[in-house]
Design a protein around this nucleic acid. Structure first.
Ligand code: FES
Ligand code: FES
Lengths: 153, 153
DNA sequence: AAATATACTACTATATTAGTAGGAATTAAA
DNA sequence: TTTAATTCCTACTAATATAGTAGTATATTT
C-alpha cells in the first residue's frame, strides 16, 4: 500500500496541475482545504517535494507553491518514489529500495522473485507512463461518463 | 511491500510443494531450517494457513504439515491475501481490504483511483494465474539457464 | 510412560507512519 | 518601518503495524 504521505503528495500536485496555466503560487492552506489534507502534514510534504525539485515555492504573504515541470512531465512513478514508496512487492526486486533476501541463497534462481519481478514490471509500465495531466484527463472522462449515466435514468 | 509473514508462508508452502507426491507431513523444524525462517514464527504462520484450509496437520511425534490442495491449485494471490497482504496500492481499490478515501468525495470520478485500479488489475492478473507449481517450474528453468551460462564460460 | 510433535494464548520489542508544535526567515503591503 | 501572512525547519509525539518469542496445553507414536 502507498503511504498517506504519497497519496497526499499526488493529490496536492494534482491541485497545482489543475491551475497550471497561470503558474502562480497556490498557498498550502488552499491546497489543504481543497484536498482535505491535514495542513501541517502537507507543509512537511510540500517542503520535501521542493527539495526534490518537483515544485518551487515563494515565501511571504503572496507566496505558495507551484509546479516546476509541466503536468505532463511529472510521472506517477516519480512521485511515488520520491515520497518513499517502494513499488515492488519484495525488496529483492526493488530498484530503489533494494535489499537482498537473506533466506534465498541465490537470487538468480529464485522462482518467487521471478514472478514478483514480472508484477513490478507490469506496475511500473503503467505508473511510469501516467502523468499528472493524464490523471486529470481521466478525471474529466470519468465525470462525463457518470453525468451521462445519470441523465439516462 | 509484502510482509515477511507472507513471504515466509509462500516459501514454506513451496517447501511442501517440492515433496508433494509423497504427501506425508513435514515438520515445522525441517521447513524452518530449509527455508531459513524463525521456527516459532513459522509455527504461528502454519497454524494460520491451516485455519484457512490451505494445509493440514498431524500432531504427535510423526506429525507435521502437508498441502491439502495440489500445488497447481494454490495461487500466489491466494496466499498473499490469506496472510493479510493487500495487493492494491490504495485501500479504495482493494477487494479484500476496502476502505473509502475520505478525501475523495466521489470515488467514481477519481482519476488517481482509476490508474491505481489498472495497476491492481495488472498485478492480480499475474498473481492469480501463478501457482506454487508454476513457481517451482520457474525455479527449474532458471537454474538450468544459469548452469548453462556457467559452463559456457 | 516418554518423547516429540502441533495448538494456542499472550506477550514484547522494534520500526514505521502520521501528524503536531513552535518558532525562524522571508516577502509584500499598509 | 511595522504588520500580517506565508514558507522553512527542527524536533517532537502518538498511534499503529510488524516481527518475533515464551510458555503451556494437547495429541500421537513408540
Ligand atoms: S530472492 Fe527475494 S524472494 Fe527469493
Ligand atoms: S478514491 Fe481513492 S484515491 Fe480517490
Amino acid at each position: 500500500m502507498l503511504q498517506k504521505k504519497t497519496k497526499y503528495a499526488i493529490k496536492a500536485l494534482l491541485a497545482l496541475a489543475r491551475e497550471y496555466k497561470e503558474n502562480k503560487p497556490m498557498k498550502i492552506s488552499v491546497i489543504a482545504e481543497k484536498e482535505a489534507i491535514p495542513r501541517k502534514f502537507l507543509e512537511a510534504i510540500m517542503l520535501e517535494l521542493r527539495h526534490h525539485g518537483l515544485v518551487g515555492s515563494k515565501m511571504g504573504s503572496t507566496g505558495g507553491y507551484y509546479l516546476i515541470k509541466h503536468p505532463e512531465e511529472i510521472m506517477l512513478s516519480n512521485v511515488i518514489r520520491l515520497t518513499g514508496g517502494p513499488i515492488a512487492l519484495l525488496p529483492c526486486v526493488s530498484l530503489n529500495f533494494y535489499e537482498p533476501c537473506i533466506e534465498c541463497l541465490n537470487e538468480e534462481i529464485c522462482g518467487l522473485r521471478n514472478v514478483i519481478l514480472e508484477v513490478r514490471e507490469a506496475s511500473i509500465k503503467i505508473l511510469s507512463k501516467t502523468s499528472l495531466k493524464d490523471i486529470l484527463f481521466r478525471e474529466n472522462k470519468l465525470s462525463k461518463k457518470t453525468k451521462a449515466l445519470k441523465t439516462m435514468k
